[in-house]
């Protein structure tokens, strides 16, 4: 038998396999050890508490199953988040692990997620004139509405599917961006709104308003 290159990763891959048939709470260290073919003690050494395991498992799932499509513009951002929400819908057990891991008290010094930095970079380009306070408000709102938590809340609490969740996301993001004066935006967005841009929650009177 070949030694696994990396025991920590082998444990996560096996946990992901077990997640297909049971919830995270029902995956005991004992069962996990049997699945990997190592001792329970080895798992404790890698992941001293279930919170450590949950955080690491979420990172692994994120990397292998839900890679974030790159985005630079606001319309790309919408498209990237839609793709993620649809991927969550296709693997709900994995997506709930992500939502749950994002809620626990951080076990390690956690870095902000990649999507957080990507949203901040997008705003730097799209809205260079925005003051610092509003930039933080907008970044925080976009980040929170694009989270696995948003998907999980709308799926469990509102019984919505991916299409409906994408629609609620577009409306929420539209409402947030509509708060900013037009002069905030760099030229491209002001003149040619991208195809992914949808109507905000703010109603615009008159004809020509189309529902997405």
């Amino acid at each position: 038998m070949e030694e696994p290159v990396d025991t920590a990763t082998a444990i996560l891959a096996s946990a992901a396999v077990l997640l297909r048939e049971r919830t995270f709470d029902d995956i005991s260290y004992r069962a996990l050890a049997d699945e990997v073919g190592i001792s329970e003690r080895t798992i404790y050494r890698q992941y001293p508490t279930r919170a450590h395991l949950l955080a690491a498992l979420s990172n692994w799932i994120e990397r292998t199953c839900f890679p974030l499509p790159p985005f630079v513009t606001v319309s790309d951002f919408h498209a990237a988040v839609h793709e993620r929400f649809r991927a969550f819908d296709a693997s709900p057990a994995y997506a709930y692990v992500g939502a749950r891991a994002a809620a626990i008290s951080p076990t390690l010094d956690t870095e902000p997620a990649y999507i957080t930095r990507a949203i901040e970079a997008m705003l730097d380009v799209a809205a260079p004139a925005l003051n610092r306070r509003d930039r933080r408000r907008v970044a925080a709102s976009l980040r929170y509405f694009s989270s696995a938590m948003f998907w999980a809340r709308l799926r469990t609490g509102f019984d919505l599917d991916a299409g409906e969740i994408c629609d609620a996301f577009d409306q929420a993001v539209g409402a947030v961006l509509a708060r900013l004066p037009a002069a905030t935006w760099a030229e491209p967005r002001a003149t040619t709104p991208g195809p992914g841009r949808t109507e905000p929650l703010v109603s615009r009177p008159g004809p020509g308003r189309t529902e997405p």
């Binding site: 994002a102 809620a103 951080p106 956690t110 902000p112 997620a113 957080t116 933080r136 970044a139 925080a140 980040r143 929170y144 509405f145 989270s147 938590m149 948003f150 809340r153 709308l154 609490g157 509102f158 919505l160 629609d167 609620a168 409306q171 929420a172 409402a175 929650l201």
Partner: peptide, 22 residues
């Protein structure tokens, strides 16, 4: 969409996310 967005914001997940990510 409005109820879902407000319900999302009116939760402890908001505090956790904004603290952790920003």
């Amino acid at each position: 969409a409005i109820v879902a967005a407000l319900s999302h914001l009116d939760s402890v997940g908001t505090w956790v996310t904004l603290r952790r990510e920003f």
